[in-house]
Computed example of a mutant assay.
Amino acid sequence: MKSPTIAFFGIGSVTVTILHALYQNGIPFTILCKDKTRMESLKTPIRFLGPNKKTTVLNLANHLQMIDLVTLPFDFIFLGCKNQSLENYITLTNHVLKPDGKWIFIQNGLPEGHFLSLKDKIMGGVVGWNTQVLSDGTYFQSNVGSLILGQTNGKKPDPRWHQFLEPWIPVVTTEHLLGFRWHKLAINAIINGLAASKQSSLGELFLNLKSRNEAIAILSEIKTLMKKLNVKEEVVPGSFPIQKLGDGENALPKWIRHLVLIILGLKYFKIRTSMVQDLDHKRKTEINFINGEVIQIAKSLGVSVPYNEKVVSEVLTLENNF
């Protein structure tokens, strides 16, 4: 069977990690550029440091193409942008996606829910790793993490994604994308949202008793929403069930929950997650699509989520002070 054609529109930490796996496996891919300046910048090789501590130099010059010069459309297009730019990225790539092709959303939050009219043309990708850009420009993937791929129509994606990305990225294909999405939303609400509100690394966050209590309260609010929506949690490999960390049914003893967060803080002590880095560089965050998404859903259900509201208020205040 002929391999599908794969493209990327928007290059950042997550997309670089995915194209690194394709690059290593010799799978063809195209990077779409909307302006020549960006195209020229990507001709400079990218250094990628994986969790195996080995550095790979990615020469992407032969993978670049101006989007307005594309002659053959693609089966899959990874959209590497923030949630707030998704609609624009869809518009810009609509003419280069095959009629039966799919956009792959790798954003945080619940992005597929904002494009229900396009559900047959969307795949969701839940990312289980952290990649950040070091001071010398190297992309550093700090942990081995899976890519969970699911279709919004409930069908399993093409199983060939395993051979395209593994062993560099373990792949999970699922019929239960929403369960993984909610799990990752909850995790991001603390490691991104709460950490951003305090502008702290994960070590600073989870080695602080008050912050751990706030994290558990945030997870408890999300756990309540999931129960009301009848969403069954699907745990991202290597992560920990929200159902056991949040208060209420199935919760572990509180001292164990604190211990789990302490271990997480020690393991990733220096990591400043993406939203924290956005504030470090005085960029707008995706807070409205993480904790803000929780707030909007809670309002529709008549549920109070004061801890998530506090996080959003504090992050927006920091943004407004830029």
Rank of each mutant, 00 (worst) to 15 (best):
D158G: 00
D136W: 04
G128D: 10
N130W: 04
G137Y: 04
M123H: 10
E175N: 12
V172G: 11
S142T: 09
L134S: 15
G125M: 14
V144M: 05
T174S: 11
S135R: 13
T138H: 04
N143K: 01
K155I: 06
L165I: 04
Q151T: 11
G179M: 15
Q151N: 14
Q151P: 02
I169F: 00
V172Y: 04
V171T: 09
V133W: 03
N143S: 06
K155D: 09
Q151C: 13
R160C: 08
G150V: 10
T173W: 02
M123W: 09
F180Y: 15
Q151I: 00
W129T: 00
P159H: 07
Q132G: 12
D136E: 07
T131S: 14
R181S: 11
F140E: 04
F140A: 06
K121E: 07
W182V: 08
Q132V: 15
P157H: 05
T174A: 12
N153E: 06
S146M: 00
D158W: 02
G150F: 01
W129D: 01
I122W: 03
T138Q: 06
K156W: 00
N143E: 03
R181V: 02
T174W: 05
T174F: 10
K119W: 06
T138C: 08
P157V: 04
G179L: 12
K156M: 14
K119D: 12
K119L: 13
W161R: 03
L178E: 13
